[in-house]
Nucleic acid binder design. Structure first.
Lengths: 298, 298
DNA sequence: CAAATAGTGTCTTTGAGACATTATGCG
DNA sequence: CGCATAATGTCTCAAAGACACTATTTG
């Protein structure tokens, strides 16, 4: 290899030794995590099978800005770590959980998204199975709480126009934890024509969710809905041993619609689950076979 | 609304007025773009239909680091703009193209990815149709060049182990432009077990591609391969009027495998294309009907 | 036995994959 | 007419969707 020299006659080694970072304004970069879990809702009747609910973890802000509002767990990325390592670190600090499914979601960079200063958010989607959640509950992060998530599509309008179309989807996001109800309306606008695409999430009404986190949550649910259909991502919400009905319930709460049992079991049961000899017990009806996860290559 | 006060007795307004950004080390954030296009390869024979080739735009580095190597177009994000706006701005500056398909890809944040300092790269996938490319060619960015892309999967190994599996995919990325041949081997390792997932791209051999850009290119091709199958993203690589054979060729070069004509036309032809009265001419064989894009909602 | 869920059988319809056949313009 | 591509017909097979039926436990 020849030693290339630049227009100032410097080799790369010399250039780097003399390099001083400029005085440009730089953003802070935070990671924010949408941590999903699927928990059993207690039905009063002991004979009925418990229903699953989709949960996400939020933390109550104890300082400005957005004091008192609920925010996604997260924190700033430190030098000498990747955003993924930062997410892992924050996860451990805030929930004392260590190894869970983690996937980068999107980097939100609207200049005004944090009123203090220029902060980008590299967001992550995390999934944790409900059996590990209980460990987390008694954590020292006093104001961390699992909220039940309901994302309803309230309106979809689709209009074709000159060389393209506009699609507007209105979401109503409802997060509940006991008496606490956080409610937000998010409008997802997609505008397409032959010169490009524009996709934006606008928060119309917001009640109690910090910063632009309602938008990040909607984005995360959309990603989860998409990926659940062609990957084994849902297995991360399920304990080591699970029934196929549990797995189906997870699919149903993610997709927000009921699925038919037989085809579900044929498709996902064969693809994602391996039968074991174990069975459920303590149910007021016929016991169910327990399955183990079967890993899909992709 | 009550005026909430924090533990120092400040309202949000007072807090923000007094806020001073701390002296933490912050990263620089750049955007890097993988700009794809599909161009005709000239076959010598006038009777034969031209074949399509997948191209990406690279820029030769004229300064350290990676002097002389070829890099993705991009630049630093400035205050008061989003990463997407930065990508649009750089796109216009470097290629004088204004409205094209743009989609955020991934934020790469390995601390050592830039030898100068801490630089994260928020990468974007861009698609441009070949009829607009010619406008770009005579640009003032003297050392910008369209490289023909060939990404070959040279080896896949899959091994199941205790509670999970490891999949290793070796890619050989070859970029050619006339006599210039840039060649890189990238290894994609996915390691899964019941406590999490680890996915990494390691550059094994690298000949002429700057920074970690080979990895970004591989990631972009994987995304393109995935999305082409369930979205109308491929329409962005095609001019206003196109033949179904052209569209099929685009699918074939993206997926890297031949497709059968009849089912392709039934599926994508009906879904993505609208027949017009126009026809091709100047071909040494039967003319072909020209189609217009039909927009899919999703 | 009744209630409730577990688990399977089967019919219909849809569509992918594969191959064959017909159609058409150019030289 | 022959070449090369355009465009469509049709057969097979696999799987999704829908519904019905049988099986098994508890109280």
């Amino acid at each position: 290899m020849e030693e290339l020299r630049d227009k100032n006659g410097l080799t790369e080694k010399e250039y780097l030794a003399a390099y001083r970072p400029g005085d440009y304004v730089k953003p802070s970069v935070a990671v924010d995590m949408v941590i999903f879990s699927a928990a059993n809702k207690n039905t009063g009747n002991y004979r009925l099978l418990p229903q699953k609910e989709l949960k996400i973890l939020l933390i109550k802000r104890s300082g400005h800005p957005c004091l008192g509002a609920w925010a996604l767990p997260g924190g700033f990325v430190e030098p000498n770590e990747t955003t993924e390592q930062a997410a892992m670190r924050e996860l451990k600090e805030e929930t004392s959980v260590e190894n869970i499914y983690l996937e980068q979601l999107y980097t939100f960079s609207d200049p005004g998204r944090d009123p203090r200063t220029w902060v980008m958010s590299c967001s992550y989607l995390a999934l944790i199975d409900s059996s590990k959640v209980n460990v987390t509950a008694g954590d020292d992060a006093a104001s961390a709480s699992w909220f039940t998530l309901n994302l309803e599509t309230t309106d979809v309008s689709f209009s074709e126009h000159e060389n393209g179309f506009t699609r507007v989807t209105d979401y109503h996001l409802l997060l509940t934890d006991g008496d606490i109800r956080l409610s937000t309306t998010v409008r997802h606008t997609v505008d397409r024509n032959d010169t490009g695409t524009c996709s934006r999430y606008d928060i119309a009404e917001n009640n109690g969710i910090a910063f632009d986190h309602a938008r990040i949550i909607c984005y995360a649910v959309e990603r989860l809905r998409g990926k659940v259909q062609y990957t084994d991502i849902a297995l991360n919400l399920v304990p080591e041993y699970f029934t196929l009905t549990e797995l189906q319930q997870i699919y149903e709460i993610i997709l927000g619609k009921p699925l038919i049992k037989a085809p579900f079991r044929r498709k996902y049961g064969a693809l994602l689950a391996e039968p074991t000899d174990k069975q459920t017990s303590d149910a007021g009806h016929r016991p169910s076979r327990l399955f183990k996860r079967k890993w899909m290559s992709d």
